[in-house]
Each structure stands twice: as structure tokens, then as C-alpha cells.
Amino acid sequence: MTFIKISIALMLLSCSASAQTFAEWFSQKKTQRKYLLAQIAALNTYSNYLRTGYQVAKGGLGSITAYVGDELKLHTVYYDRLKNVDPALKANPKVKEIMVRQIDINRQTSEWKTDYLVTVKAALLKDCNEQLDQLGAVLSGKTQMSDAERFEQLNVIHTAMLSNLQFARNFNTTLKKLDIQKLKEIIDINTLKGLYENH
């Protein structure tokens, strides 16, 4: 009798366990369908976000491309302007003064013909030529400079040529003094010779 009671209890327990497993299984299918539907809805939403994001990114990249293009045009205009020379610079009186100073330096150094003087003259004229080359570059627009930089460079060249001219003049004055001194010495020597010969 006890055995039968135990057997019945085990059967009921077994049926109960079997029914619970079936309920869980059925419930899981229902829950799984809910999850799948929720995932599909989430994927649709995500897809919409992606589409919107792509359009925004594409529009944004278009804006960036347009911005870069505009920026490049501005830089091109800026650098082209740096090559253009202000007519006021070419008409500046300092340009003519530089040229006149070069002519004067050539005149001042025309008599420098001994070895030492030729070396000094060559060094001086080399610097003058460099100044004139720089002037040509500033006036022709070969160099990329702003108008302010061009005027500043003109002032530098103007000052350098004035310095070269002053050197040539001072050097000539010194040479003339030396020549006069030499002449004086020669006269003095000849005078002394004459005095000694007469005695």
C-alpha cells in the first residue's frame, strides 16, 4: 500500500513536472516572438537613424568640400595678390634714387685701376649688383610679398645703395688726400734736391 502511494505520488509529480516544462516551453515561444518583434522594430529604427546619419554626413561632406574649395580660392587670390606689384611702388622716387646712386658709384670708382683698388671696386660693385637684383625682384613681382613688405624691402635697398655711395665717395676722398700727400712729398723731395744741388 505504501508502495502504491509512493508510485502515485511519483506519477503526479512526474505529470506536474511534465506540464510545467510544456508551459515553460510554450511561454518561451511566445516570449521569443515578442523579443523578435522588438528586435525587428529596433532594427527598423536603427536603419532610419543610419539613413538620416548618412544623408547628414553626405551633406556635411559636401559642405566641407565646398568650404575647402572656397578656402583654396581665397588662398589662390591671396598669393596671386602677393605677386602683383602696387604701381605706387614702381613710381616711388626711391627707385630712381637707387639707379642714380649706381651711376654715381660707377663714376666714383672709374679711376680705381691698381690691383688693390680693383679688388675693392669688384667687392663694392658685386654688392651693388645684388641690391639691384633684389630691386628687380621686388618690382617685377617674382617674389611673393605683400605691398608693405615690398615697400620695406625698397627702403632696405635704398639705404644699402646710399651706404655704398658714401663708401665710394669717402674712399675717393682718402685716395685724393693720399695723392696730394704723395705729390707734396715729391715736391718737397725735389725742392730739397734743388737746394742741395745749388749748394
Rank of each mutant, 00 (worst) to 15 (best):
N84A: 12
T191Q: 07
Y116E: 14
I189R: 13
L135C: 05
V77Y: 11
S18M: 13
Q108F: 00
T76A: 08
A122T: 15
G59T: 10
C15Y: 11
G141V: 06
Q108I: 00
K83H: 08
T191D: 04
L12W: 05
I98S: 04
L175W: 04
I186G: 01
R150W: 05
A57N: 10
H199Y: 11
M161A: 03
T45H: 12
E130G: 09
Q153C: 01
D86K: 06
S27T: 10
G62M: 07
V118H: 06
N172G: 13
G141D: 04
K193I: 10
W112G: 05
G141E: 03
Y49Q: 15
F26E: 07
V77Q: 10
S47A: 13
T109Q: 01
A123D: 08
V85W: 05
Q108E: 00
T45C: 03
A91L: 09
R107C: 01
Q28N: 13
N129T: 10
K58Y: 11
N155A: 15
R101K: 09
H75L: 12
T119C: 02
L37H: 09
N92I: 03
V85S: 05
I103S: 03
Q134V: 09
Q32P: 00
F167R: 05
E71N: 05
V138I: 15
V138H: 04
N170F: 05
I186V: 14
M161L: 14
L124K: 01
S146L: 06
L72M: 13
E97F: 06
L132K: 07
H158L: 03
G69M: 03
I180N: 09
D80A: 08
Q181A: 15
Y196A: 07
V138N: 06
L165D: 00
L89I: 09
L178K: 14
L162M: 06
V77L: 08
C128Q: 08
L192S: 07
R51D: 12
T159M: 10
R169N: 03
I6C: 02
Y35T: 11
F26Q: 09
Y116I: 14
T114P: 00
Y49P: 00
A42R: 07
L132G: 05
V56T: 07
Q32R: 11
V95I: 12
L139R: 08
N48Y: 05
R150M: 04
V120D: 04
E71F: 12
M99D: 03
G194P: 04
H158I: 02
S18A: 15
K182T: 09
E130W: 04
T45I: 08
D115T: 15
I187A: 09
R81L: 04
G53Q: 12
K126P: 01
R107E: 02
I187V: 13
W112D: 01
E71D: 04
N198V: 11
F26P: 00
R81H: 08
Q108K: 00
A137R: 13
P87N: 06
